[in-house]
């Protein structure tokens, strides 16, 4: 199987280039990560992040044949040759397939992604009905892989002002949590023309999310809450 992989090492290269690789012995059911690991055995300088190998840690996100995804849950059988692999778009490249994710994490921190409870907490659990808890399904499962934000044109154009789908999904996760007591501040924090409202419902985020989550819908729900809250 043939691969075309983006290479750039700032210590050695004046500019990025695409390198061709070939791999024999493709086993049935093999994922892209397994192929990359085999290529790394041939060429130790090929650099990428990886850890859990089963789509829960979010390390090995990359652009695969033009679409963002996780290498460890992308079957080779689904990929057209030569498989073109690039770093996630829109973020500075550190080396090869490794991007600098600081801006993405900064956006995440900006939405105050933690439960805020102002009343004294009980000595047991805060009660929550199964129905209230169900509202968090589709929100809390995010693995911060950045596939969505780096597929979003609004993020590419205004990464410093628009928070991007991943951070907004997190905002929604706390806005929807029946235990949280900071709704007004959370909604106020998202006001203005950019932070949330730069979302033009292009829905690239939904298409690429490896966990099947729907940030566009979450953003829509936040908008509804804003309207309701302002009445």
């Amino acid at each position: 199987m043939r691969f075309n992989i983006y290479r750039y090492n700032p210590d050695l290269d004046s500019k990025p280039y695409m390198q061709e690789y070939e791999l024999r012995d493709i086993e049935p059911g093999m994922m892209l990560l397994a192929a990359l690991l085999k290529l790394k055995e041939q060429d130790e300088t090929l650099s990428f992040r990886r850890s859990c190998g089963e789509g829960v840690c979010g390390s090995d996100s990359m652009n695969i044949n033009g679409v963002n995804g996780l290498a460890c849950i992308t079957p080779l059988a689904d990929l057209r040759e030569p498989v073109e692999i690039r770093p996630l778009p829109g973020l500075p490249v550190v080396r090869d397939l490794i991007v600098d994710m600081e801006q993405f994490y900064q956006q995440y921190r900006e939405v105050k992604p933690y439960l805020i409870v102002k009343d004294p907490v009980p000595e047991v659990e805060l009660p929550q009905t199964p129905e209230q808890r169900e509202k968090l399904d589709g929100l809390y499962e995010c693995i911060l892989c950045a596939c969505c934000s780096t597929a979003c044109p609004s993020f590419w154009w205004n990464p410093d002002k628009f928070l991007g789908p991943a951070a907004l999904l997190q905002a929604s996760r706390f806005i929807e949590d029946s235990r949280d007591q900071a709704l007004d501040e959370r909604l106020e924090n998202l006001e203005g023309p950019f932070k949330l409202f730069r979302c033009h419902t292009i829905m690239n985020c939904v298409q690429v999310c490896p966990k099947g989550l729907n940030p566009t819908k979450a953003i829509g729900n936040i908008r509804k809450k804003m309207v309701k809250n302002s009445l």
Binding site: E125, T129, P130, Q132, R133, Y140
Partner: peptide, 20 residues
């Protein structure tokens, strides 16, 4: 330890009576 985590925001699954 569990109640602390719950207060930190861990989205535990719930029983009909609202408990973990």
């Amino acid at each position: 330890a569990v109640y602390e985590l719950e207060h930190f925001g861990v989205p535990f699954s719930r029983l009909d009576n609202g408990k973990i």
